[in-house]
C-alpha cells in the first residue's frame, strides 16, 4: 500500500468531514451525552453500594461468596465502560456515510478514480478518516469516565482503572469494532445505488454482531484471556472484511450508477 496516497485521502476526508456542522455536532454531542448518562449512573451506583447492607444477598448470583464493595463497583464500572464503546460505533457510521455521500453529491468520484490511486489505498484512507476523529472523541469521554470511576473507587480503597481489561477494551476492542462498522459501510457503498442505503444496510448487519460482542464482554470481562480472544476475533473480521471490500469494490458499478 502507498502510505502517501492513504495520507492524502485521509487528510482530505478529515478536512471535508470536519467542515460539516452535523459531523462536528455528532462528534461533540454524542460522547458528552453518553459520558453524562453513564457517569451519572456510575455515581448513583456508587452511592447505592454505600448502602449495601440494604441490598439482599439474593440479588447476586448463587455462589458469589463474599463480595466486597470495591468488587461490585468494579464490575459495574467495567460494564458501563463497555456500554460507552457504543458511542464510536454510532458516530463512525454517521461520519463514514457522509464521506461517501459527499463524493456522490459533488460528483468527485470519477475524477478521483481517474487518478492512479489504488483501490486499497482509497479504502484504507476512507477507513481512517471516520475512524480517527471518532476514536479521539470517544477516548476523551472514556478518559473522563475513567477519572470519575477512579476518583469514586479510591474512596473504597483502590484505583480500579486502567487494568488489563480496560486496556483491552479501550485500545483493542473499540478501534477494531469501530473499524468493522466503517468497513461494512464502505463495502455496501460500492454495491448499492444510493450510498445512504449503505449506511442502513451496514448498520442492520453490523449492529447485531456488535451487540452480541458487547453482551459477551459482560460475561467475559473478568477473564482477560477470553476477552482477548473475543477482541482478536473482531480484528480478524476486520482483515477479512477489508479484503472482501477491496475485492468487491467495482469501479464500473460506481461509475455507471453514481456519476
Amino acid at each position: 500500500m502507498n502510505t502517501k496516497n492513504i495520507k492524502i485521502i485521509f487528510s482530505k476526508d478529515m478536512d471535508e468531514l470536519l467542515s460539516l456542522n452535523i459531523v462536528k455536532f455528532s462528534i461533540i454531542f454524542f460522547p458528552i451525552l453518553f459520558l453524562f448518562i453513564l457517569s451519572s449512573v456510575l455515581v448513583i451506583s456508587f452511592y447505592q453500594i454505600g448502602h449495601m447492607s440494604s441490598i439482599p444477598l439474593s440479588t447476586f448470583p448463587a455462589g458469589t461468596g463474599d463480595i466486597h464493595n470495591i468488587q461490585i463497583f468494579y464490575y459495574l464500572a467495567l460494564n458501563y465502560l463497555i456500554l460507552l464503546s457504543v458511542v464510536p460505533l454510532g458516530l463512525s457510521t454517521t461520519i463514514a456515510s457522509y464521506s461517501i455521500v459527499g463524493e456522490k453529491q459533488q460528483r468527485t468520484i470519477e475524477p478521483l478514480l481517474a487518478t492512479p490511486l489504488d483501490d486499497r489505498d482509497l479504502f484504507f484512507g476512507k477507513l481512517l478518516a471516520p475512524l480517527i476523529p471518532t476514536l479521539i472523541a470517544s477516548y476523551i469521554s472514556i478518559f473522563i469516565y475513567t477519572i470519575i470511576a477512579d476518583y469514586l473507587s479510591s474512596s473504597l480503597g483502590k484505583i480500579i482503572f486502567p487494568d488489563t481489561q480496560w486496556i483491552i477494551i479501550v485500545f483493542i476492542f473499540i478501534p477494531s469494532s469501530t473499524a468493522l462498522e466503517i468497513l461494512f459501510t464502505l463495502l455496501f457503498s460500492s454495491r448499492v445505488t444510493d450510498p445512504r442505503s449503505a449506511q442502513q444496510i451496514s448498520g442492520m448487519i453490523i449492529l447485531p454482531i456488535i451487540i452480541v460482542f458487547i453482551l459477551s464482554l459482560f460475561y467475559y470481562s473478568y477473564e482477560p484471556i477470553l476477552l482477548l480472544i473475543l477482541t482478536f476475533s473482531v480484528i480478524l473480521a476486520d482483515v477479512i472484511i477489508f479484503r472482501i471490500a477491496v475485492r468487491l469494490f467495482d469501479r464500473e458499478r460506481i461509475i455507471t450508477r453514481w456519476v
Partner: peptide, 19 residues
C-alpha cells in the same frame, strides 16, 4: 494504472469538493 498516469481527463461534470 498506466492509462491513468499518462492521461489527463476532463469529465463531463467537473466534480470538485465544493467547500
Amino acid at each position: 494504472v498506466r492509462l491513468r498516469k499518462r492521461s489527463g481527463l476532463l469529465t463531463e461534470n467537473p466534480g470538485f469538493y465544493e467547500r
